[in-house]
Amino acid sequence: MMDAIMTDGLSFAMPLLIMAIGGIYSERAGVVMLAIEGLQGFGAFVGAAAAVISGIYLGTESPLLIFIAMAAAMAGGAAFSSIHALLCVKFRAQQVISGMVVNTLAMALSPFLTSVINRAITGNESNKFQIGPSVRFTVPGLSEIPLVGGLFKSMYPFEIVIIAAALISCYVLYKTRYGLRLRACGENPHSLDAAGGDVNRTRTIAVLICGALSGLGGVFLAYSISATYSPNIYVGYGYLSIAAMIFGNWKIPPTACVCMFFGLARSAGYQLCLYLGMPGSYSDLLLTLPYALTLLLLVFFSKRNNPPRAMGETFDRSRR
């Protein structure tokens, strides 16, 4: 049972984490990011479409497909996030509004395009893509550790990519010149401007990175939940990752802990239900656990939250 909790918990926590890290890039650069829900869904759509289309040529069993899906999802998410970047940075739109524009646009476009593509390929108008199950692997040795060994059993290739991305992001945000500039953009963009940096460029890049990472999270969700892509991808996990980011105080390590907490609480709820032999409907009650606990924990920890100071403000050089 412990193994199942760990394996399932990790596969739910990792997509949340990568989306939350995307959000951290954007919000630490001062651009409010409510668009994660739309970005992950659209990224998943592009990834799934790429997998289905290349499956025609490579065969549906090809192990390459998942990597094609990953790359396509990142490209799709980044491309779609350019709308948010354009609206917020260039067109001076309100960032909350722009985020919702991106969400509604993604939720409208992706099912529409899915049915158009399906009509072109198979002739029937389904709004689903069958993308097949993902490759999974077990790390020898590490998976034998009692209690936490389950974390290393039947892992998705995504998980390795996401952990790598998280570590690289820690380095980029805190140890590089770009990271320093990005954080300056979120706290006091005028100081960056005075130092000769380009605020709008830094912000645009941050939003595009967020789009790419959200797309990766989205396609992982599509693979791990059902091995299909359908409009059901929009169940609000993007919003949940925003909650994790805020709970994690816009920092990567605490956010990673929050995501693991969400993942483990969720899978533990399922397993507890199975263990106690309760009827399926009771699992719904246990599924509220992560959310109720989050609220409870926030009551104690939220006082010390400090969001990036310049978040939500359009950069205007003439206003100092």
Binding site: A243, S281, L287, T288, L295, L298
Partner: peptide, 27 residues
Amino acid sequence: FLKYRFNIHEVVSTIMFNYITSYVTGF
């Protein structure tokens, strides 16, 4: 109340309430 007393962002709390309501009423 959660926002002004405990500084809990309304986006977070409303999302949590969405899930809780949906699961509890569903149950």
